[in-house]
Design a binder for these strands. Structure first.
Length: 822
RNA sequence: GCCGCGGUGGCGAAAUUGGAAACCGCAUAGCGUUCAGGACGCUACGAUCGCAAGGUCUUGUGGGUUCGAGUCCCACCCGCGGCACCA
């Protein structure tokens, strides 16, 4: 019979993470151990992850993975002696909260409060070592005062302007829709057909910074795929602006092209459906009604569909209008087609036989075609000349007057120069990057701090009147006119003009979600400052961000926008010189966690895994280790709840071994070698975010320790607990205490490894015959080819495979492989 | 469509970056322990032929380079992400 005392002793020794974790979290947060110190003697390190949007669903295991990964790095960096800034905040303005408020009729700020409380609880629950003293919230007027201040500065510097822009519009809900809210052309809420509607919008001239945003990609440490995507997004192309005179009109059609070498084959002109000439010269267009109808239908097709190469091309000729090709002098017809986009280039192209869509369109409508570029390949050239095939690549010019015989690259500058002399063309650099639409007709955003006066025009709110606080309204729905609900508060809208003191009106649009997230990382340097967005000295101490992790989906929007805003703030002197013009030194990305069925986790699909349940069942350390073990950090991985148990078993093993196995003063040599290798592996892997293999090597060590007969050196156990601690901080801290080691585990120095012990003394040589593995043997490390040959040639397996055949050559890789080619 | 990423056992994956394919973990099977169950421990575990020794095949498909290819090159197929008002 087991006595009561024995029974309770057994119970006490059982690994129960819930108790351990709550205890250590309490101690960590109470002692303020994760607070960053301004101007410490230690070297600073600023580690940042994208601050979350606090949704009502709470964190799911996908968010957790990226946060835990960064926390592992944070904990290691601290132990390596850095003064670490690892901050947190909330990107809380946005549509989902507004929609929730509309539905439940509660103020969005209440929903935000509830959601951030939940997120905060969950982040503490999984043991993130965040500096909570610097917490920020984009919806806090003390914060968005500076978001508005930045807008005013943009306006004062000529970078914010109003323009008419198409927005998605639901005629039934009478509301502007986000692209996301338009599902295959229909309003997400009511299902009626969405249409495009023109609206005056604030735009930000990010295009002024296109070249610098492109150029400075060369000085930052971003993954190549991120740089490529940003370069593609900016989309620089070097080309020419060509004028095509219109018969009987004073202004010519301007066309941007990168393929001026094909100008002599330009047999027609295509305008985008929204091109201003269609309206301007409507009297000249004989079939205006037909054209207008076509243009209107094109409006409701997305750009992606319009520019789809596979799609059938459509178009309408502008009858009664002719243009002149400035190179050939010929009169050519003018068409309108939806694959020509308004906002790229000049919204018009010259069309020819060297573009697939032009080619298709000409064949379809019987528009004349002529080639001016032919390939080297004679057979192909024949087919191209006969217009049997569309040749899009560069080649040799023909049908091109004095330029015949030149290749495309040589011809381009010469043709531009020739047309330039007669004032028909000029060199031009274009970017795909478009100015950034900055207004939203929604409630839950920062009010745009602008005032419109009939006499003075647009005026910014004076700095001393910031912040322009978001007033309380009864309804959060946009108004019937599509304006934000702010427009219905007369007392707020009507205001005196700051310049002439006459009657004026406030801007009632709000800013997009990006506004607050553009600069949030600057605020962490000095989150409570009331005089400026952040003190310059603190900015120059903490910035740039040393390591910024986020999702790939933010590469072209948030990441590019915030780089732009940083450059702008730098230009106006809001940031001190030594920081430089790039905010983030190094960028990494995490992969998404997929739910069951290998699809994205979402509430509507019901495949969301909540970390609360995992922690309840297995503990936070198990969740942490599993999140890191599940697969490569930057890769997309499906969540498999069955796998969690393996990580729990590993931690239990460590717990039991530490309790049951004795340690020694001069411990086992093999274990010493093994722990040194493990320290090296874990140190290197964490730095490279190869968390999965770091966990695997820790598991290997635990297995080795378990089966070893010799005792583990006490110092080696300390090393093991320290390198385990970024991944399983609570357990490491607890076991450190159990062993009665001095201090706290989380405050120890990161261990070094002994190079001599890591090096192998013996090498396993793989013996191949004709590239196939036939044998293997262990030899002394570093022996020569001759010595190796001597050893292996007498081996029976080797003899058997070589037989009497002649040896042609022998390939030898020291300490690794010998391959005998016969 | 354009741009980017990926495809390896039943499953998640590893592979010193051109040198033993499948480390570590999940699942499964057998054995041990136990009154029993669980937990734990040990063993096996890509396919195929074979009693065995051993052989052959195998990293989405097809070709190429190389003594040697999961890794490099060419062509193709499939899945995923972004595409400017989701965050």
């Amino acid at each position: 019979m087991i006595s009561k005392i024995e029974f309770s002793l057994q119970a006490m020794k059982k690994y129960s993470p819930q108790k351990i974790e709550r205890k250590w979290q309490g101690k960590w947060y109470k002692s303020g151990g994760f607070k960053a110190k301004n101007f410490s003697k230690k070297k600073k390190f600023y580690l940042l992850f994208e601050f979350p949007y606090p949704s009502g669903d709470g964190l799911h295991v996908g968010h957790c993975r990226s946060y835990i990964g960064l926390d592992v790095i944070a904990r290691k960096k601290r132990m390596e002696g850095f003064n670490l800034l690892f901050p947190i905040g909330w990107d809380a303005f946005g549509l989902p909260t507004e929609n929730y408020a509309i539905k439940k009729k509660i103020h969005p700020s209440l929903a935000t409060k509830k959601n951030t409380d939940n997120f905060r609880r969950q982040m503490k629950m999984i043991g993130l070592s965040l500096d909570w003293s610097r917490e920020i919230n984009t919806t806090d007027p003390k914060y968005y005062k500076w978001t508005q201040w930045i807008f005013i500065k943009l306006f004062e510097n000529g970078l914010a302007y109003k323009d008419r822009i198409n927005i998605n519009w639901c005629p039934s809900c009478k509301i502007g829709l986000a692209n996301e809210e338009v599902i295959s052309g229909r309003c997400e809420r009511c299902g009626s057909l969405a249409e495009k509607r023109e609206k005056e919008q604030w735009l930000i001239k990010i295009t002024n910074y296109a070249e610098r945003l492109l150029e400075d990609l060369n000085v930052v440490n971003y993954p190549e795929r991120v740089k490529i995507q940003q370069r593609e997004w900016i989309g620089k192309s070097d080309g020419a602006l060509v004028k095509f005179p219109l018969e009987g009109a004073e202004d010519p059609v301007e066309v941007f092209t990168t393929r001026i070498d094909t100008i002599f084959s330009g047999t027609f002109l295509i305008l985008s459906p929204g091109h201003k000439f269609i309206e301007k010269y409507k009297e000249k267009i004989e079939n205006f009604e037909e054209v207008a109808k076509y243009a209107k239908s094109a409006k409701n097709i997305s750009d992606i569909e319009r520019s789809n190469l596979e799609k059938d091309v459509t178009g309408v000729e502008l009858k009664g209008i002719l243009a002149r090709n400035p190179a050939t002098g010929e009169e050519i017809p003018v068409w309108v087609a939806d694959f020509v986009l308004e906002h790229y280039g000049t919204g018009a192209v010259f069309a020819n036989a060297h573009d697939k869509r032009d080619f298709k369109m000409a064949k379809k409508y019987g528009i004349p075609l002529r080639t001016s570029i032919i390939p080297q390949n004679e057979e192909l050239a024949h087919r191209v000349k006969n217009l049997e095939e569309c040749f899009e690549e560069e080649g040799i010019l023909h049908n091109s007057m004095q330029f015949d015989g030149l290749n495309s690259t040589e011809a381009r500058p010469k043709i531009i120069l020739w047309l330039k002399e007669r004032n028909f063309a000029d060199n031009k650099v274009k970017y795909k990057l478009r100015d950034w639409i900055f207004s939203r007709q929604h409630y839950w955003g920062e009010p745009i701090p602008m005032i419109f006066c009939k006499t003075c025009g647009w005026q910014s709110v004076s700095e001393k009147d910031l912040p322009v606080e978001l007033p309380k309204v009864k309804k959060y729905q946009p108004t019937d006119t599509g304006e934000s609900p702010l427009s219905s508060i007369k007392s707020w809208v009507i205001i005196k003009c700051p310049k002439c003191k006459g009657s004026a009106k406030r801007e009632t649009d709000t800013m997009p979600n990006w506004a607050g997230s553009n600069w949030y990382y600057l605020r962490y340097a000095d989150p409570k400052n009331n005089k400026t967005l952040a003190d310059k000295k603190l900015l120059s101490y903490w910035l740039p961000v040393d390591w910024y992790n986020g999702g790939m989906e933010h590469t072209t929007l948030h990441l590019l926008y915030s780089r732009f805003i940083f450059k702008f703030l730098y230009d106006i002197g809001a940031i001190l010189e030594p920081v430089g013009s790039e905010p983030y030194k190094k960028r990494t990305s995490h992969g998404v966690i997929l739910g069951s069925g290998g699809i994205k986790m979402s509430k509507s699909r019901g495949n969301v895994v909540n970390p609360d349940n995992v922690v309840k069942q297995y503990g936070a350390d198990t969740l942490r280790v599993y999140e890191m073990f599940i697969g490569p950090f930057e890769q997309m991985i499906p969540w498999d709840q069955n796998g969690v148990i393996g990580c729990r078993r590993f931690l239990e093993k460590v717990y039991n071994l530490t309790h049951k196995k004795a340690t020694a003063k001069n411990g086992d040599e093999n274990l010493k070698i093994f722990i040194n290798k493990t320290v090296k592996k874990v140190t290197d892997d964490i730095e490279l975010m190869k968390f999965n293999t770091a966990v695997s090597s820790l598991m290997k060590f635990a297995n080795k320790w378990q089966t070893s007969i010799g005792n583990l050196d006490e110092k080696d156990l300390q090393k093991f607990l320290i390198i385990l601690s970024p991944l399983a901080p609570h357990l490491s801290e607890e076991l450190w205490k159990v062993k009665d080691f001095t201090g706290n585990c989380s405050q120890q120095k990161w261990p070094r490894y002994d190079e001599k012990l890591v090096k192998e003394k013996k090498a396993l040589i793989i013996i191949q015959v004709n590239g196939k593995v036939r044998d293997k043997t262990e030899v002394e490390s570093g022996i020569s080819q001759k010595e190796t040959e001597k050893i292996i040639m007498v081996r029976p397996k080797v003899k058997k495979w070589i037989g009497r055949k002649k040896i042609k050559k022998v390939i030898f890789i020291p300490d690794k492989l010998i391959n005998i080619v016969i």
